[in-house]
Design a protein around this nucleic acid. Structure first.
Length: 484
RNA sequence: CGGGGCGUAGCUCAGCCAGGUUAGAGUGCUCGGUUCGGGACCGAGAGGUCGGAAGUUCAAAUCUUCUCGCCCCGACCA
């Protein structure tokens, strides 16, 4: 019998193995990450979920600044005409617009669109800020909310309003802009792997999957525990598409009018959903220590005020020391039975539980339990400032390794359409094939399997074998998956 | 927007097919007591426009029509 099935353990959520979407909803809501709101398609991000997002956000914000970018802020409302200048961009986004048509009780002369993304606003404003090659590169970022009229919404994964950062940069040369695209994709990989313990594939999107208005898009793709892919960050190369459409020019080194090359890149609150689906199990959420709002939950076990006082005084110096180690510790003093608290904090995914009661105190010890496998171990109180950071580090590493093993175990290479169809008929995961990059092939595969191309891995070589779908000469290796 | 499912207490649901006292259970919540190392137990209590509207009927949670919302699958998408 698995631990999860024993009486007494978390059983208030649907089973991940039987109903993955139901499990996901239960975990998000019962771990108090988010809830549905009175507004269709929009969610309330609750304190625990927001704290998780803040940890991801802060790590990414540091990286963004370290790589030379500055934060700023633009309006949430964009004049409709701004959005209509770049043909491909409008075509891609127009059906997702949510529009403000009235103000002060009167109809506006021009409708204002709630930003689905801010390329058009940036390009319009930057005409004033970019005059000379000396003003470049302009490396910017903004943290904001964006609005897209999604037909089918899911908490964190797809909502009509979501939080993200959108980076926008402008460069003198195409080569420099393309390096920027790579740099930021690397930042996203770092956030995903080193912070969220989520291994990702990196690479270029196919023509049909790219961002509307981009010359090409790149992304990181992670595998969720149901074998589906989740695009977890994107970095786009625009060439001079936007600067031409918005008549953005600068005076070059040879006194000629030139169009800057631009990029944009984004990572959103979707990452919270990714963490849930990449690490969660039958007992609920499982959080990587690096981003866990609470890394160590202390469950004091006592029956009398005297016992409580003894625990308090034993814990005080330890809590001070852990604070010095920057470990996020919380003591759950609530008047509830320990077993109840064990379950609740497991559901909420806290990496380490520290139990301390009379039996432990008698030996000057505490009991540590890892969320990962419920492994228990007694540790001398004085050793905690050394043991806990090391244990958190090991858990972080183990979670990344487990996620990578899972992905590898669900990744296959095939060389025919028949094999691809068979795989998705009876299995889940990533399939790598040679491909000729014709969109017709993507349409065929989508019709037969509902899977789509996720990306052409960075650094992958042109295969010798022909396209798995149509037999024409292959120009790339591509990863197929069912995607969120 | 197509297909399927569901709206009854904060949450999970029973009751509906075969209309009929004052609409129920578990859980959660409040109070009291006993408890406390894996979701305790006993007792008392609060909590409901049965999603909404119209219709049929002596009588509607239950039947009919319309409508709104939510979930799942698909199309669209971070």
């Amino acid at each position: 019998m698995a631990d999860e099935e024993k009486p007494g353990f978390v059983d208030k959520i649907r089973k991940q193995s039987e109903d993955f979407p139901g499990w996901y909803n239960d975990v998000v809501r019962k771990a108090q990450l988010a809830d549905y709101s009175p507004v269709k398609g929009c969610m309330v991000i609750r304190p625990y979920g927001y704290a998780l997002w803040e940890n991801v956000r802060n790590a990414l914000d540091d990286l963004i600044k370290k790589t030379g970018h500055e934060n700023w802020y633009f309006p949430a409302l964009i004049p409709l005409s701004f959005l209509q200048k770049e043909a491909e961009h409008v075509e891609g986004f127009a059906h997702e617009f949510q529009t403000v048509t009235h103000g002060g009780g009167k109809e506006l002369d021009e409708p204002l669109v709630l930003r689905p993304t801010s390329e058009t606003m940036l390009a319009s404003v930057l005409r004033d800020y970019i005059q000379s090659y000396r003003d470049l590169p302009m490396l910017t970022n903004q943290w904001n909310n964006v609005f897209r009229w999604e037909l089918r919404t899911r908490l964190f994964l797809r909502t009509r309003e979501f939080l993200w950062q959108e980076g926008h940069t402008f460069h003198e040369t195409a080569a420099e802009a393309e390096r920027e695209v790579e740099t930021m994709l690397d930042c996203y990989r770092e956030i995903a792997e080193d912070w969220c313990a989520m291994p990702v594939l990196m690479g270029r999107k196919s023509e049909s999957e790219k961002f509307a208005g981009a010359q090409y898009s790149t992304s990181i793709e992670a595998m969720m525990k149901d074998g589906k892919a989740l695009q977890s960050g994107t970095s786009h190369y625009f060439g001079d598409n936007f600067s031409r459409a918005y008549d953005l020019t600068f005076t070059g080194r040879t006194n000629t009018q030139e169009h800057p090359y631009s990029t944009s890149w984004g990572m959103s609150t979707r990452m919270v959903g990714a963490i849930v689906m990449a690490h969660g199990d039958e007992a609920g959420l499982q959080l990587p220590p690096q981003v866990a709002p609470v890394q160590v939950i202390v469950i004091p076990i006592f029956r009398s005020d005297t016992e409580r006082a003894q625990i308090e005084s034993a814990l005080a110096p330890v809590l001070d020391a852990l604070d010095g180690e920057d470990i996020r510790v919380k003591v759950d003093w609530r008047d509830l039975r320990p077993g109840f608290k064990f379950n609740e904090w497991e559901l909420k995914g806290v990496p380490i539980r520290l139990e301390v009661g009379p039996r432990d105190l008698a030996k000057r010890e505490v009991t540590l339990v890892q969320r990962l496998d419920r492994a228990k171990q007694a540790v001398a109180i004085g050793d905690l400032p050394v043991v806990l950071p090391a244990m958190l580090g090991r858990i972080q590493g183990a979670m990344l390794a487990a996620a990578k093993d899972f992905r590898d175990a669900h990744t296959v290479r095939v060389d025919s359409l028949a094999a691809l169809v068979r795989f998705f008929a009876e299995s889940v995961g990533f399939v790598i094939t040679p491909w000729c990059e014709r969109p017709e092939d993507e349409a065929i595969v989508k019709r037969e399997t509902t899977a789509t191309t996720r990306l052409i891995p960075r650094g992958s070589r042109v295969p010798d074998s022909p396209c798995a779908i149509c037999g024409r000469p292959a120009t790339a290796e591509v990863v197929w998956a069912k995607a969120y």
